[in-house]
Amino acid sequence: MDNTFWAFIALVIFLGLIWYLKVPSKMGKSLDSRAERIRTEIEEARELKEEAKQQLAEYQRRRREAEQEAKDIVAAAKREAELMLDEARRKNEDYVARRTAMAESKIGQAEQDAVAEVRASAVNLAVAASARIIAERNSGGASGQFIDQSIGEVRKRLN
């Protein structure tokens, strides 16, 4: 009985013990459960990947919508600003036109007043001159009263 024999006996006992404790089936079950767990994790990873793709697509769609909405808001703001600018220009032009018309009206009124004043002065001067000339020519009592009435009537008609 040498060492080789005892090593052989130890190997047989070891293999018998492994077979008795059903180590190969336990190892198979362990490997099978591990393989199943790995398959489950792979499937979950695929599902998560698909979900991530869907979320990415949703976020990209929302981003495009937000960009379009921002463009629409900017365009609406530009249109509104242009309308406000046009309205301000129109109001400014109306204001300038009203002020110009008012100034022209005042100028026209001032011209009319000046013409009327010049006429009145001319009439007064003409009447005074006429009165002096007539008074010098006709220095009499009754005719003087008639002349004064005539001069007053001329003043009324010319003014």
Rank of each mutant, 00 (worst) to 15 (best):
I134Q: 08
K91W: 08
L15R: 02
I73R: 11
M102L: 06
S30K: 04
T4C: 09
R62A: 13
A135I: 06
R119N: 14
Q109T: 09
L15A: 12
V12P: 00
F5Q: 09
Y95A: 15
R137A: 12
E67I: 07
R90I: 07
I42Q: 12
T100D: 07
L15F: 10
L83G: 13
D148M: 04
F5D: 10
L21C: 08
V96C: 04
D113S: 07
E136P: 00
P24Y: 01
K71H: 14
E67W: 05
E104S: 06
K53S: 04
K156V: 14
A116D: 10
L85E: 08
S105F: 04
I134F: 02
I133Y: 00
E51D: 09
A120P: 13
V127T: 13
A88L: 07
E50V: 13
E44I: 15
I18T: 02
R132T: 15
G141Q: 10
F8S: 11
L158I: 12
L31R: 06
F8M: 13
L56A: 12
E67L: 06
R46S: 10
K91F: 08
E51L: 09
V96T: 12
R157D: 12
Q149S: 04
N3Q: 03
V154L: 11
A126F: 13
R155M: 01
N124C: 06
I13W: 03
Q145Y: 15
R89Q: 02
Q149Y: 03
A114T: 09
L11R: 00
L48C: 02
A97I: 14
M1K: 14
I134C: 05
E41G: 15
E153F: 06
L17Y: 04
A120V: 13
R79Q: 00
R89A: 02
V154W: 01
A66M: 11
S25Y: 03
N159G: 14
R155D: 01
A110K: 04
L48K: 11
K156L: 09
A88G: 02
M27H: 03
R155A: 02
A66V: 06
A75G: 05
R99W: 03
V12K: 01
K26M: 09
A122V: 13
E82M: 05
G28C: 10
R46F: 05
S121E: 13
A76V: 05
K71W: 13
R34P: 00
R63F: 15
A70E: 13
D2Q: 05
D72R: 10
R155F: 01
I13G: 05
V23Y: 00
A129E: 12
D113Y: 01
A120M: 11
